[in-house]
Design a protein around this nucleic acid. Structure first.
Lengths: 192, 192
DNA sequence: TGCTTTTTGGGACATTTGTCCAGTAAAATA
DNA sequence: TATTTTACTGGACAAATGTCCCAAAAAGCA
């Protein structure tokens, strides 16, 4: 059986592509598997790939001035992940990207994406739309930091991703939420 | 003398436009002046315009659950501003946008932008690039919330926008930085 | 200019959150 | 499975930050 490209269905859902346009992907997508704990991208490399998670969970994290890891974001099945800032600016990434469980990826690298963009209007527009969606997601996260307490952010997360929370070590969740592990432990106890 | 479109020079700097392509703007840009304190966009309207600040300062703010104003962002001369999330999703904005001083704007509304996008590849690509830049800015702000203390965020801001700080009431700065006015007052005293 | 309103600075105290730590539980590894 | 390592919980205390408040300063307005 031919490979199924999961990424394709996302593109299809946001743009009215012809089959020919979509089939460009077949030669451009590559695959990769990551073992739990393995790094996809290391801090201070330039990020040259956007990955799509077929199965698994990724997190990106950077270091604070004390050398502690701060989790910047998580990405789950059917989501894209990259160090987008680095991918866009082509400067060194501040984040590393790591698999939290065994993970299967479809990968589109910079060259592949350039080819798509140059192939015409529809791919150009798709790139813009996806960037817009990433922006909106990031904006929501930013607002949650300004508007909500750590406890409230945890409750939001619990509401929306309850099933994933058990898979993520508390320390990662804590820095993602902007609180200390000690405090997240308190929050969890209070929520029960 | 013909009008000078400040916005144009931004577009010119990020894309290799022909004169014809750029001249499309002449019929699409509109103007507006805001008095100090005046609102450009009110919370719960859909944001249908992207504005470019020729002169002045804007801030966007939303309300917390106690009804207090939280400043979401500032925009200064030569920068774009909108409730981008609302502009993108076409859902009601959570933020209002207000002039902090008398302000002159160039405006591009949704229809105008659609026309540009439909006019071809170059405008499509420009839209993507600008969205990418907005994303990178927002990402930096997000990282500053995860990595830095309120005091450190203040110092960053002071380094980069010292000249503007005097023009912005402390209460607006405080919520922008994610601290109480009382605490920002403490921070300022410690920094001197 | 003089009056009124808004903004700022800072004291006193309360609350939240962080740090440090140790005992226990859970997970990884041999 | 036994052993080692890592992660979680929660106590005690410390530090950071918020709330409430009022007097001084600044800004807006008649």
């Amino acid at each position: 059986m031919a490979n199924i490209f999961y990424m394709k269905s996302i593109f299809q859902s946001i743009q009215n592509f012809s089959n020919e346009e979509l089939d460009l992907l077949d030669d451009l997508i590559t695959f990769r598997m990551l073992k739990k704990g393995e790094l996809l991208l290391t801090e201070s490399q330039v990020c040259n790939e956007i990955v799509f998670i077929k199965k698994g969970i990724l997190r990106s994290f950077f270091l604070n001035h004390k050398g502690g890891e701060i989790t910047n974001c998580f990405a789950f099945e059917n989501e894209f992940m990259a160090s987008f800032a680095s991918f866009i600016t082509q400067e060194k990434a501040e984040e590393s990207v790591q698999a939290l469980v065994d993970t299967e990826l479809e990968i589109l690298d910079r060259k592949a994406l350039e080819k798509l963009y140059q192939s015409g209007f529809n791919w150009q527009e798709t790139g813009r739309k996806l960037t817009e969606l990433e922006f909106v997601n990031l904006h929501k996260r930013m607002v949650s930091f300004q508007k909500l307490s750590g406890a409230e952010r945890y409750q939001e997360l619990y509401k929306n991703h309850q099933n994933y929370l058990q898979l993520i070590p508390l320390q990662y969740l804590a820095s993602y939420l902007g609180v200390s592990p000690r405090h997240l432990s308190r929050i969890r106890k209070a929520v029960l």
